[in-house]
Design a protein around this nucleic acid. Structure first.
Lengths: 255, 255
DNA sequence: TACGATACCATTTGCAAATTGGTTCGCTTT
DNA sequence: AAAGCGAACCAATTTGCAAATGGTATCGTA
C-alpha cells in the first residue's frame, strides 16, 4: 500500500459510502454509475470530494471513467486496436517485416495455385512497368501494385484484407525515411530480378517456387531495412552533392 | 453492345444532353453532379426520364450513384473493407480456415521461440481448464482463450491484431451452427490431445514441432468443418444428395 | 402507353443540443 | 489559512432532428 497524500475528511466519507455502494451490489457489474453531479447530491457531498474518491477507486481498478461517457464499474475494457494509426503506433518496422514474411509467401503460393490467366497477364504488365521505371517514386508505386496484385490473385478475401491492413501500417507515417533508404540503388537490380522470379513461378503454377522466391525477396528487403536501422545517421560528408533528393518533404505528415 | 429495351424519346434526349455535358467537361472528374431534381429541371425533362438515362451512364461506368450521397462522375471508388461485419459478409468459413492455417502455425512457432515463462504457465493453466471442462460452451470459450494466449505469446503486436481480426470474423454471426456441429463429441478428445501437443512443444521451445502440431490441429478442424458443410441437413436420409463437395464454389453468404 | 408531376421511403450528412467527465474560480466554513 | 461547496466553463461523447439525395410508387394527362 502506497500511502499518498491522505484524503480530506469529506473525501474519506465519500470513499466509504462509495465502497459500501459498490460492495452491496447496488449497481450491476459493467453498469454506468450516475453522473458525478447526481451522485454527489445523493451522497450529500460536493463534487470535488466525490471526484477525489473516484480517483482512488479508479486507481484501484474498481471503476473506470471517460469524459463524455460516464463512470463505469469493473476494469477498463481492453482496447482492441481497430484503427491503423493506433496499430502502427504500437508496432515497429521489424514486426511488420516479420508479418510480411509470414503472409506474402503464402499469398504467392496461393496465387500460383489459383491465379487466373487475367491475373498473370496483369502481373506481367506490372513487371514491365517496374523494369522500365527509372523514377524512384514510380518504382515504389509499381512495387506496391505488384505485391497487391499477387495478393488479389491469391483469391482469398480475408487474406487480402489482412494484406491491406499490413500495407496500410507499412505506409503509415514515420517509416518513409527507412523505406527509401532501404531502397539503395544497388539492391534495386536484385529486387527486379526477384520480382521476375516470383511472377514467373506464379505464371507457371509452381507453388513452392513462388513461395520460396517471395520469401527470399522479403528477406532481402528485411536485411536492407536492418542495415539502415542499425546505422541511422547516414551523414552527408562525401555524398553532399549526389542527386539524392533527400527524401523530400515526406517527413512530418501529421502535426 | 447489348441492346436492351430501347429508351423512350425523352430519355434518349436526356441521354444525349448528359453525354454532351459530360464530354464537354462541364463537371470536374470525381465531382458530384447536381441532384436529380435540379438536373431534370435544367435539362427540361422529368425526373423519371433523367433516371433512365443515368442508369445507362452508370451501367457504362461513367458515373456512379448512391442513395443519400449523390451522383458522381468516374468509376465507383474501390471499397476497402474496414468493418468486421462487411468483411465477414464477403468471406466464408473455408476462407477463414485457410487463413487460420497460414497464421496460427506461424504464431505457434513464434510462441515457441519467444514465449516467457509466464506465458507457458498461462498456457498450461488454460490446458487444465480445457481438460476439466465438460460443458460445450465452456470448452468453446477456453479453446478460444488458448488460441489467443498462443497468439499473445508470439510477441508480435501486428500479428496479434491480425489474429484478433480473423477471430472476430470467425465469431461473427451466421457460422455458430457450423462451429457447433463441427465440434462433434468424438473429435473433442482428439482436439484436447492436439492442444496438449502444441502447448508441450511451445513449453519445450520446439518451434518446428509447435508449428506442425498447430497445423495438424487446424487441419482436423477444417476437415470437420468441411464434413458439416457438405452435409447441411444432418438429419435426412444418410447420403441422399452426396454431390461431392466441389470445394471450389464456396457457399454464398452475401446476396 | 409514355411522360411528367407529386408524394413518400431509405440512406446519408450535418448540426445543434444535451450529457458527462475535467478544470478553474470564488465564496463560505472551520 | 485550509478545506469544502457551488457555480461556471471546457472538452469529449452521445443523441436527436432536419435537410439533402437517390429509390420507388401513384396518379393524372396527352
Amino acid at each position: 500500500m502506497l500511502d499518498t497524500a491522505p484524503l480530506s475528511d469529506s473525501s474519506n466519507l465519500a470513499l466509504g459510502r462509495l465502497r459500501a455502494l459498490l460492495d452491496e451490489g447496488s449497481f450491476d457489474a459493467g453498469q454506468r454509475l450516475p453522473p458525478e453531479r447526481v451522485l454527489a447530491a445523493q451522497i450529500g457531498i460536493g463534487r470535488r470530494a466525490l471526484r477525489r474518491a473516484l480517483e482512488v477507486l479508479e486507481a484501484e481498478g474498481r471503476i473506470w471513467r471517460h469524459q463524455g461517457k460516464g463512470t463505469f464499474l469493473g476494469p477498463r475494457p481492453v482496447h482492441s486496436p481497430t484503427g491503423i494509426e493506433e496499430l502502427s503506433s504500437r508496432t515497429n518496422p521489424l514486426e511488420v517485416m516479420d508479418v510480411r514474411l509470414e503472409i506474402e509467401p503464402a499469398l504467392a503460393r496461393l496465387a500460383a495455385l489459383r491465379a487466373s490467366n487475367g491475373d498473370t497477364e496483369r502481373l506481367l504488365r506490372i513487371a514491365d512497368k517496374i523494369a522500365s521505371s527509372t523514377d524512384a517514386d514510380a518504382l515504389e508505386l509499381w512495387d506496391g501494385a505488384l505485391h497487391r496484385a499477387i495478393a488479389e490473385a491469391a483469391g482469398n478475401t480475408l487474406l487480402l484484407a489482412i494484406f491491406d491492413m499490413v500495407d496500410r501500417v507499412r505506409q503509415d507515417v514515420g517509416w518513409q525515411v527507412l523505406r527509401e533508404r532501404a531502397r539503395s540503388r544497388d539492391r534495386q537490380s536484385a529486387y527486379v530480378e526477384q520480382h521476375r522470379r516470383v511472377i514467373a513461378a506464379i505464371a507457371q503454377r509452381e507453388a513452392h517456387a513462388a513461395e520460396q522466391a517471395m520469401r527470399e525477396h522479403l528477406e532481402l528487403v528485411r536485411d536492407g531495412l536492418l542495415k539502415v536501422m542499425t546505422r541511422p545517421p547516414l551523414n552527408e560528408q562525401k555524398l553532399s552533392s549526389v542527386t539524392l533528393p533527400n527524401s523530400k518533404d515526406k517527413l512530418r505528415h501529421g502535426t
